[in-house]
Design a protein around this nucleic acid. Structure first.
Lengths: 251, 251
DNA sequence: ATAAATATGAATGTTTGTGACCGATTTATG
DNA sequence: CATAAATCGGTCACAAACATTCATATTTAT
């Protein structure tokens, strides 16, 4: 039985059921557990499914970005560590831009008592910012429902009226050659604008985003300081040649 | 049974019923209580539900929940009646401005299926608007903590870039001679701008605001259609000479 | 035809998820 | 307010699922 046949079979099962058990495939295809296991590893590498204990489950559709909702899934400890470290760069009276996203959101508690002024397009940050009474300017523009962010041409235009000391951005892909990328072109343009208007730019991304690339390019890797965690040694040693990459140790 | 399958099942139950009992899941899935308990812990960590004694419940809003400490004014029935009536003026495909404030907020449920585009400076409206997936443009500018509204010169400038079919404003004082007034000059300027940019302007105010005047003038009484309730007969008979004043009957 | 590259399956020790147990805590009831 | 019942969090042992290694089979290139 051909490898591609098995792969096709596994994918058809997944499409039908949403999840699939390893044992279930073994029984139906009459090949060894090892082989199926290898198949699953490969399919996962190709981003065609997500491996889970005991089998696999479908991935959200290709091209569609994860909503903030699903994004919160795991690596919370990493995100918090990254956010805490990023916050250490902020000085008193800074004017900073906070990009929409869960990782950046974790920075907010550290802004207290620093007398910063925050400019943001992230609606998910607003409750926390209000709670801590942090001076906040909200970027105007259209609301994107899937991520609760303000995006679009108006937002870019609004942002252009400001100058920031530092900006802190989330990012979906960080690749030494392909640069910093994110799925939505509108968001990419907004991030790009933020970088242009800020004296210093920081990108917060957990190590799962390293060596990945998504649709729309924001900037080159050298255009921002990358803050990530140490959970992907291989990717890090590769990126660390770049002096702009900072790694936070988690646990 | 795969962990992912159980998680999906629990979430589907939650989506259907709003809450779910631990025992109920145990019975239906035929797995141990411990396992379900662990599942709930994990799902809570992923911010996909809220654990409560005996089971779990959905998180009401995705992400954003302004700390709207509600205007404790008792006249909720009046506000709802006024809002409902005001909504009846909205036509399909209108572009409307919704002012910050609790009365205006009550209009939002009536916007569904009208395909309106909303422009607003009221952060308290955002969760509802997102929930109903109503096309929304948020005015950019500084957040005023006491009312959760966007205000200031930037907001006025932002607003000036738009033209609306109708605007719906809250108001603190309505006086036949002193006109429409509100305590905060910044907010007054924003309301004034909204009126200037809208083809038709509506002011929503319960009858306690009639014959009152506060600090900053927004416009003359004739510059907008006033929608109020019938709980202050004296004030109404006086104002009703003005054809712009509409009175809603609240039993 | 032969060597190199690749795919397979079995054997291994390790990790992870599970269910049962139990004392602590919370909620319901009289 | 006291008591009982339900629910909770933690620990434990066990089995299932896991990654890894190695020997063997299969394919591919020359």
């Amino acid at each position: 039985m051909l490898t591609t046949e098995r792969h096709a079979f596994i994918q058809s099962l997944l499409k039908k059921q949403g999840t699939v058990k390893l044992q279930e495939i073994v029984d139906q295809l009459q090949v060894s557990e090892s082989t199926i296991r290898r198949d699953l590893v490969q399919l996962e590498e190709m981003k065609l499914l997500k491996r889970v204990h005991g089998g696999a489950s479908i991935l959200q559709q290709k091209g569609i970005e994860p909503t903030t909702y699903e994004n919160q899934n795991k690596s919370i400890a990493e995100k918090q560590a990254i956010a805490k470290f990023a916050s250490s760069f902020i000085e008193n009276n800074d004017c900073i831009y906070l990009d929409a996203g869960t990782t950046v959101s974790e920075m907010i508690p550290y802004l207290k008592n620093k007398n910063v002024t925050v400019l943001t397009n992230g609606l998910m940050h607003i409750p926390k910012l209000i709670e801590l009474e942090i001076k906040t300017v909200l970027v105007g523009g259209s609301i994107k429902f899937s991520t609760n962010a303000i995006v679009g041409g108006t937002a870019v235009q609004f942002l252009s009226e400001y100058r920031m000391d530092k900006c802190f951005l989330g990012m979906n892909g960080i690749h030494s050659e392909l640069g910093l990328t994110t799925p939505d072109p509108d968001e990419a343009l907004l991030k790009k604008t933020a970088i242009r208007l800020s004296s210093e730019s920081y990108v917060l991304a957990d190590s799962t985003k390293l060596n990945e690339a998504t649709f729309a390019k924001v900037a080159d890797v050298n255009d921002a300081i990358i803050i990530t965690d140490n959970n992907d040694e291989e990717a890090i040693t590769q990126l660390k040649k770049n002096p702009n990459v900072k790694v936070v140790t988690v646990k």
